[in-house]
Write a protein that binds this DNA or RNA. Sequence first.
DNA 1: TACCCTAGAGAACGATCGTTCTCACCGCCA
DNA 2: TGGCGGTGAGAACGATCGTTCTCTAGGGTA
Lengths: 190, 190
Amino acid sequence: MTDDADTRARLLDAAEELFYARGVQAVGMDELRAASGLSLKRLYRCFASKNELVAAYLRRRDARWRADLAAYVTAHAATPDAAPLAVFDWLHAWFAAPGFRGCAFVNAVGELGPASADVTHAAREHKRALHAYLTGLVRPLGVADPAGLATQLAILVDGAISNAALTADPCTAPQARAAAHTLLTTTPHT
Amino acid sequence: MTDDADTRARLLDAAEELFYARGVQAVGMDELRAASGLSLKRLYRCFASKNELVAAYLRRRDARWRADLAAYVTAHAATPDAAPLAVFDWLHAWFAAPGFRGCAFVNAVGELGPASADVTHAAREHKRALHAYLTGLVRPLGVADPAGLATQLAILVDGAISNAALTADPCTAPQARAAAHTLLTTTPHT
DNA sequence: TACCCTAGAGAACGATCGTTCTCACCGCCA
DNA sequence: TGGCGGTGAGAACGATCGTTCTCTAGGGTA
């Protein structure tokens, strides 16, 4: 058995679950070995170091998080106007889900921050991609400044996540949704 | 010399600088000893464990952070209407300050989270106090739902902090301020 | 059957962690 | 002057970390 895609997936599954639930530094490589069922040798053949594994964990989580969000929005938004608000409905469900513990990228940067350039880069890429997605959602609405409005929505998204993580109250999401609704209806149109 | 207030202050100064800059787990007790100039014995007489020191660091940072914010707002807000917006001007200056690295409480909870009840409690108290402060700022404006509006403003504050921390762009603050302005002017009044 | 390459299990390693202990030393009261 | 309680400096301790190494076992090929 070489380090094929299935092996990587199993390892990343274990890494995501443990890293997100307890933080990066609180999870040791031996625990990852036990959770993934792999041997240490294969683990280190997939990722040469813990840093690489952490970076891969963040990259995959970014892709999956945004794919889940986009799938929900396209499934639940009947009209283009409803799409930006559906983002906050998805957040509401996420906040209430067991194991929710805030933004994995904010947590990772707060924990490792300046010590790991890979983590900082992955987090920055995540936020940039989210902003681009939100810009795409508001552009069809014919607003005057899609990028600026997307930035304001992104601030609401991040704020809702942080607030929900600290207060453990999922109802932060409806409040953020209401604020987004206000911003969307009062922003100037072309 | 006993563990008087000056000793505690020096230790907490060092702890705040190091914990905030590099994360809690990345800073060892020996480094705190070197940075504070205290001996390990006195250090452990002030705080019986690292956990207690971390909790004290967060409590003092909460008090100072909110005092600084309140002082700025009272000094720079000419009218009650300007007060909530002044919050975001203060954030703007903070984001641009050297060493800014996001919300200390979000970072600490993300790093230690479920493993430390004291940290979670301190962070929750911080957010609760901020919400109470914002409620006090919007109440004189005669809005219909001061607490709800304060929650929305708190979401903007947290979102601006997270965004600025990840993107290293202080201009998140003006965008959050603009969003706050929209919310303030369109909220129903009594 | 004999050989060899690889994999798994886990011991080993050096570093570092939080915490405690040792020990020489100093100011203080009798 | 002579003990004495408390101090600072740092060694020591057990635990745990990320990473590497050893050793054994097994399966494919000639």
